[in-house]
Design a protein around this nucleic acid. Sequence first.
DNA 1: CCGATATTTAACTAAGTGGTTAATTAACCA
DNA 2: TGGTTAATTAACCACTTAGTTAAATATCGG
Lengths: 129, 129
Amino acid sequence: MHDHLSQTFQALADPTRRAILAKLSMGEANVSDLAKPFLKEMSLPAITKHLKVLENAGLVTKTRDAQYRPCKLNGAPLKDATDWIEHYRSFWEESLDRLGEYLKTVTAKEKETTKKKKTAKGKSHGRKK
Amino acid sequence: MHDHLSQTFQALADPTRRAILAKLSMGEANVSDLAKPFLKEMSLPAITKHLKVLENAGLVTKTRDAQYRPCKLNGAPLKDATDWIEHYRSFWEESLDRLGEYLKTVTAKEKETTKKKKTAKGKSHGRKK
DNA sequence: CCGATATTTAACTAAGTGGTTAATTAACCA
DNA sequence: TGGTTAATTAACCACTTAGTTAAATATCGG
């Protein structure tokens, strides 16, 4: 929890916070501007807290302009996050790696069964929640 | 927290879980193999729980082999995660602070309307700096 | 100064997380 | 069969998170 990467992923693990970042990617915005799309679902202090999480993760920088707090997105921490994930790219690209042969066999079988009949359901991996 | 992307980021927001994925990237391993590096720091049930989080996020698949539970890494959810982050790449490339203002004007050419929004808001009360 | 706007802080709650120890299930092997 | 190994489940605990409402702080504008 203390390490930088965990903090970044933790900050991203919430749809409201990701939506705030999305909004900030279109330009600077102050708190109430950012809050507006969410005020039907949650209160302003809730947004303040989300912003604090993003700020602590270094993803957002808040400045001062009169009563306003213009926020801007800082993408730097995202670089470390994406660098970490990138290390695993071969595991979603089906390329041959140490597990390549095994994985390829499994996925090939799965594709074959899906292909068999158009009526097959498809996306489920048989995992339960 | 129900959405897939949040679940993925949440699963990645822990150094133990990321270490488990790192180990799994080197090949299949059963639970006690995965637990071994951590048994000085935490108990086996703790690892079981971490694995459950990874499993629920779809990042790990557990199979059965006698008493053993061989686990394998499934990278598919990482694709969505990295796709989301990739959308923000421009925010960490060229992110030198001193050039920030200049770059902002460069990016502003395609978001002119967004930039006006903030000014318009302030103008409604004749706000000045 | 007063009143409005913007934002934060405080205090509280419900639920989630990450860990524990002890007990349980399940499969192997001699 | 009984003992050992592998892993999970149960019950519990401390801490964090995500939200609330209400009050406080700060700045502007007349």
